[in-house]
């Protein structure tokens, strides 16, 4: 069971208005691993994530989640897949007109028929998990960047997803906050047994948390494997990224 592929992408080519942004990407993500997407800014990392979660449709290729091709699915079937995954957007993407608790309540109210009392307790528990007990009634505009990301994380995990996607969870945060967030991510993986797909630039976090990485250079997959394998591969761009000297 542990070696099952939860995500499988084959020969994905995609772009915007005829401008190709991803070229022939293939990759697998195994259950219970932390898979990190690396690459220079504008390399297509966010675009890749948005294709996996179905916000964008590719020109070519196939995408399977939990062993089923998502591109050939009916809306209902895809929504049942979506209910098993969570996503943390680059900017948090909290609904600005709603208070913190209401944001976290959205999936609970829409996809379960739990009593309000239970919903409130669940929200409190998730908020204390991300260390934000006092933010319950605040509006997103009253939160700092790191707090927004943590609320967004609480919202993403509230339905016990099997796969969690992160787009640059620690970008723009101070080193202490981002180390805390890393710890939180590792905790989540251990406690909940979640598969994580993370876009990040933070060298420290990558070394701390990554099981396997993919490196996108201008939309092309130039490496996919573990960090040890990356070290041995001797690819110049990756050596420069990690600061490994060649001599």
């Amino acid at each position: 069971m542990d070696n099952e592929n939860v995500i499988e992408i084959k020969n994905l080519t995609a772009g915007f208005d005829g401008r190709t942004v991803l070229y022939d990407i293939s990759l697998e993500v195994k259950r219970n691993e932390i898979f990190v997407i690396l690459g220079s800014s504008g390399g297509g990392k966010t675009t890749l994530l948005k294709h996996i979660i179905g916000l964008l449709r590719p020109e070519k290729g196939s995408i399977s989640i939990f062993g089923k091709n998502t591109l050939e699915m009916e809306v209902d079937e895809f929504e049942s897949i979506l209910k098993r995954i969570g996503m943390l957007f680059q900017g948090g993407a909290l609904l600005n007109s709603m208070e913190v608790w209401e944001n976290i309540a959205i999936p609970l109210e829409q996809h379960t028929d739990l009593e309000n009392e239970v919903i409130h307790r669940i929200i409190r528990q998730k908020l204390s998990l991300v260390n934000l007990r006092d933010a319950y009634y605040l509006l997103p505009s009253e939160l700092s960047g790191g707090m927004k990301k943590r609320v967004s994380l609480a919202r993403a995990i509230v339905m016990d997803p099997e796969i969690l996607f992160f787009d640059e969870p620690t970008a723009g945060l101070d080193p202490i906050t981002s180390a805390d967030l890393d710890k939180l991510i590792l905790d989540l993986k251990k406690k909940l047994g979640i598969t994580l797909v993370i876009v990040t630039h933070e060298l420290e976090s990558i070394k701390r948390i990554a099981d396997r990485i993919i490196y996108l250079q201008k939309g092309k997959n130039i490496f996919c494997g573990t960090i040890e394998e990356a070290k041995k591969a001797g690819i110049e761009e990756i050596d420069r990224f990690f600061g490994w000297n060649k001599d």
Binding site: L55, Q90, G91, A93, L95, I106, P107, H111
Partner: peptide, 25 residues
């Protein structure tokens, strides 16, 4: 104004990922 703000701040995308249809919601 509300819908365009939600689009720019990726709130609509976030709804979709939570298996909610923005047109309905």
């Amino acid at each position: 104004a509300e819908i365009s703000t939600m689009k720019i701040t990726e709130e609509l995308d976030a709804l979709k990922v939570m298996a909610l249809n923005p047109l309905k919601y």
